[in-house]
Every structure is written in C-alpha cells, then in structure tokens.
Write a protein that binds this DNA or RNA. Structure first.
Lengths: 151, 151
DNA sequence: ATCTTTGCAAACTTTTTGCACCAAT
DNA sequence: ATTGGTGCAAAAAGTTTGCAAAGAT
C-alpha cells in the first residue's frame, strides 16, 4: 500500500492517469516483489481484469520505468524480468538449471567502488545478473541435463 | 591463426566438420575479438562468402559455444554479442550512451570467491554486463540524451 | 557411403506500434 | 472537453527449426 501510493503519486505528478490496469500491474509488482516477467504480471493482473492486454502491461512497465519506480533485467535468453527499484539484491542465475537466487547487494559494493574509482563508472545495482553454476548443479555436474540454459 | 587452429582441432575432435562458413565465422571472431553480434559476424563473413546465411552463423556460434570456444552476453535490449571465451574481461555498459567498455576480470575475482564461498555459486566470468553510467555521461548528466538505453 | 552442415523459408518468441475507441482528469 | 491510456491486430526484431540438397570425412 505504501509503495503503491508513492508510485501512484509519482505517476500523477508526471501527468499520468491512474487506471485499473496500472493499479493492478503495480499491485502485482509489489506483491511479487522480484523477477517477474511481463507475462507473469499479465497473468496476475488478468485474474482481476481479464481484458487487460499484454501491450498494456508493457506500456505500464515502460511508464513506471521512466519514473524510476521499476527496473528490468535480462537474465539471459528470453524474457526480461521486472521489479521495483528498491529491492536491493542482485541475481545469480544458474546456466544449467536456470534457477535464480538473490544475493545481497553488499557483496557488490566493493566492485562498485572500484569501478567508480578506476573507471569513473557508476554501476547500477540490481540491473544485471551474474551467470554461473549453482551449488546443486555443480555437485551433480555432468549427471544432469544442461537443459534450457539461460545464456 | 593460433587460436583458430585450437578451435578447429576442438571442433574436429568432437566429430564436427570444418566448412568454409565455420572457418570464416571463427576468423571473424578472432579478428573482431569482442562484442560482435551474429549480424556483425554475418556481414564480415559474407564479404568472403556471400551465400552464407544468418542461421548458419547462429548454428556455428552454438556449436562453438558448446565447445567452450565462444560465449555470448546479453548486454541489454536487442542482440546478443559473442566473443571468444578467453578474452578475460568484463563489460561495463553505459545506460545513457550505450557505450561498452572492457575492464579486467581481476576486478571481479573477489566477488567470484565470495559467491563461491557463501553460496556455492561458481560465477562465470565474462558472461554478464554491468550496467550503469559512464564517466562522460555522468559529467554531462542531464544535458545529454538518455537515448537508446541498454536496459 | 555416411553423417554433418547448409541455405532457405517459415515458425517462434518477445516486445513494440498504429489506430480507433474509451476513460481519467 | 481534453488528453492520455487501452485493446486489438499487425509488425518488428532476434533467434530457432524443418527440410531437402550439398559437402566433409
């Protein structure tokens, strides 16, 4: 409710209109919290408003992204995932089983300062995924299907 | 020449066949060295072999990727970029001007060990991009077009 | 001779866009 | 009343696939 209100005010402040679809997308984002695809959001939203179209979801996400409320990441092949901007974590994605785990952004702060210091580059937390192999797949390595890899 | 030979032997060793197209793609990769799209490669290859089709490029890249010779990254929206695996660097991508800079992988080794230690996750170097704002855009910040953002 | 790779066209997946209508302010 | 948002259908953009023919071993 809290976070929704902020986003809604933000939208209004920029001349945006508050529609059922937008509220529902926002609500879905707040609830889902992390790595949902546009399609995921659509499915959630359509439970309440079946007539909402995927293009509306994309356009809403676009609008929210321009306001800085939402961000998205390309975890690999396929769909992008969206989330509210202040979920401070990074994603580690297993290239064997495609699992996604969240790790605290603190692990990345040193990298962040190094990039800033040495390259003048201001790294954006939360906007990329680290690819590799997860604990489980490493253990079973070889025995398991490299299946639908994420890269 | 060197690196091409290694890749070629690798291909042969796995029952692969050495074709004009494959040699040309490999050559293009060796020459281009970094962040080329499948289409870039196609253009290069077609200078020598105009009949080569984009699907051949993709299939060649797939094959090379399975051998560990090639890797690809999704730098953001749009096309993936491919490169030979032993270019030990990471990419930092500016979300304002879309410029790509390479930084030595050493900056990432600590993160790598942390992820291994704390999460059992074996991070793959070279397979993701760090998004943020480059020095120049930070300086001009606001004054410049956020143009074709990479995210 | 065998089995892989190729070119082509067509399918597929994800995202974007044009347009006429609808709805929020 | 005005302007921005929506649904739809169709296009785009990037990549993958089925197939018959060509090519590498």
């Amino acid at each position: 409710m809290e976070r929704m209100q902020i986003a809604i005010e933000n939208l209004k402040a920029h001349g945006g209109r508050i529609t059922h679809a937008r509220k529902a997308v926002l609500q879905a984002l707040v609830t889902a919290k992390t790595h949902v695809t546009a399609e995921d959001l659509l499915n959630i939203v359509q439970k309440q408003f079946p007539e909402v179209h995927i293009s509306t979801v994309y356009r809403t996400l676009d609008a929210l992204e321009k306001l800085g409320v939402v961000d998205h990441v390309h975890l690999g092949h396929g769909k992008a995932v969206y989330h509210l901007t202040d979920n401070s974590h990074q994603h580690i994605v297993c290239e064997m089983c495609s699992s996604v785990e969240e790790v605290p952004y603190q692990l990345f702060t040193e990298l962040q300062s190094n990039l800033k210091e040495k390259y003048g580059f201001q790294m954006r937390m939360n906007h990329f995924a680290v690819i590799g192999k997860c604990r489980r797949c490493l253990k079973e390595s070889g025995s398991t299907r490299p299946s639908s890899s994420t890269h």
